[in-house]
Write a protein that binds this DNA or RNA. Structure first.
Lengths: 215, 215, 215, 215
DNA sequence: GATGAATGAGGATTCATTCAT
DNA sequence: AATGAATGAATCCTCATTCAT
């Protein structure tokens, strides 16, 4: 690993380093704030302050708040979609592996689910775009994959959509609702142990789901 | 059901009736807007306009935006909590019945889950209050009820919390993410048929969950 | 003089009185500033300060800067157009009388010509509207009136438009360019004596114009 | 005059050529924009974009927006003043010749009158300077020239100033108000035919003016 | 000479709220 | 109980300008 020039090496949580390109630092700050407070609840000034920048400077990097939001969304969603793309198109990958991979990915970008939940809740204009451009292309192969898993498990064809939705809710919900879960059960849902536990739970649930119920 | 008086009779979706008390009409409009756009995304003027009122008039009924929000939340959450209270404290009620009852209740107040999701996402100050005052009291009996169902199904004790959370995600998610689900799968998740289908799916899922996996 | 309630009685230059309706006071201040500095050169805050109001208060009376500008324009242009309408449709009124009347009217609203010049210079969107709605309807009768005066004075039919334009330039220019004329010739072009002199000059010029040149 | 160098030879309308010195290209763009929208209505960025330059680059050529504006004004006004100087100081030149020459000059720099009108309207600080430095020196000889023409035409001495002003309004107004005239009468006042017609009209008007009215 | 990034000041407008009527 | 008018604080964004590269 010779590329030890600066701190961008590890793909882990965005480092606060001031050496990183300004646009990236803006994206990091914006991502955190948009995830925490949503689009309407986040002010451009807050983002600028978080980066240590004059609000006017943001406009040297992004056309406006809207464009910045879209950039944050795109940067976050793309890798996840690519992960799913690979998984879903690979016949040999089973449900439990996908769950594990997705959980591991989200553990690295825990703000993404909140971002998406905000977007999904408000049914904003970006939603259509995101869904149509990124999520929907996955749908057909995902349904196919689900159908493969379904075989002999007693699930009807028209239950695939609810099934996929249910997994979405369970996986994303764990991250997005972290503050509430903390309040309710105590502990940090995003701690390594709890993520590990949640992954185990989901894998077990998947097994239950795939089990044949029919007599 | 003679329904002779006026439309305030049924507890169903808030009617537009202009004969209803102003405070209620404000609550209705506020509920819809807060559910759709969140607290920060909703302006007092929007609410006032929706009611056909001058913004200043709202302050004759609620101390401020914050108080109005809390009133909306309380009005929505209380009946649900009471439903759960009854269900959870009744030894004879099984998981599938609770699911059905909750789904039927939410079908009547479909904005509630979005309201709660907004709150859960932002981890606002109301969240603690809501959780501590209303949800947590349910937790102990709920865990007990879950434990009853768990017997002989292969779930460990420390999997009860994830289990409860998962059900929360699946049930509330269906309502809260309705706009996105529409975008993704087409159709209105809140239509009677789709609610019916979702309920059936959840009941079936419950059966799978409760099944003994251990060899 | 029974209507001695407040100072709105006289139709003369807008009084500074604080008893007048706020919207009118805003219009007065805006008129003066728009006339002096044009639309782009006038800030909402300047207008508000001139009225002794918080900028936000302006928005209780006008939807936005644009709407305020249009209101100023309309309030100023309408009476002038009505004057011209009456004059132009009355067969007995001759050029010199119209000139005198217009000069007297403009003496009372000396900011109007500057307002119109600004608008005409920038060729703004309001221009079309103003011209089409208010000025053009006058054109046909004005041409007819001019044609009446023209008879036997040696002016061709296709010289009527330049003729009307020329009068427009001479009359409005005197008011609109007042600052420059002051700089150049000294004295205030808007003083009663100078207005009187200018009117005399224009009447004399009209006589010259109407004179038969052809041998 | 082989005109072999490049397109800067003729004094005609500024060519778009990218080979021309940057400062000139900036002046061209600035002239067009200042003429169209005035000083306040024109942003440095707009000018830079029109030239295809970064706003910061303008500051390599002009100290600031103000200085650029003055340069535009000077570049436009000087030749006109020189023309008038020559004409006015030449005893043999009569009114009609001056009119024709000025019209021909303005036809080549049709933005100049708008520039001057903007300046005259706002009564900006440049106005004094321009008037005092360039226009006023012309005044005495111009008055003398006018007096020569006046002889025997029935105009009093104190009518010379209004007379000069009137010609200024008629000549400059035709160019400056072009957008409004188009709107009103149709056709482009700056087209060769219309300029020709306007010149003819003005010459004829001059004849009328110079005519003896007194009995 | 040209540029990307930065910034303080100011642009118009919206916000939640108050108060006299 | 309802409203029009008023306001200070905040909204997003543009402005002219500077400076290191």
């Amino acid at each position: 690993m010779s590329s030890g020039d600066d701190e961008t090496t590890s793909g882990a949580a965005p480092s606060e380093g001031l050496g990183r390109p300004t646009a990236d630092r803006i994206l990091d700050a914006a991502e955190a704030l948009f995830a925490a407070r949503g689009f309407a609840g986040t002010s451009v000034r807050d983002i600028a302050n978080a980066v240590g920048l004059n609000p006017a400077s943001l406009y040297n990097h992004f056309a406006n708040k809207e464009a910045l939001y879209e950039a944050v969304l795109a940067r976050g969603v793309r890798p996840l979609v690519e992960l799913l793309e690979r998984a879903v198109k690979d016949d040999t990958v089973d449900a439990e592996t996908i769950i594990t991979q997705v959980m591991e990915h989200l553990a690295r970008t825990p703000q993404l689910p909140r971002l998406i939940h905000h977007e999904a809740l408000t049914g904003g204009e970006h939603l259509s775009e995101v869904v149509n451009n990124w999520v929907r292309p996955l749908l057909v192969p995902a349904m196919a994959a689900a159908a493969r898993n379904r075989d002999g498990s007693g699930w009807e064809n028209d239950e695939l959509a609810p099934m996929i939705a249910a997994w979405m809710h369970m996986i994303f919900g764990h991250f997005a609702m972290a503050p509430m879960l903390t309040e309710l059960f105590g502990g940090d849902p995003l701690s390594p142990e709890n993520l590990e536990r949640q992954t185990r739970f989901l894998r077990k649930a998947a097994m239950h789901f795939m089990d044949d119920e029919s007599p």
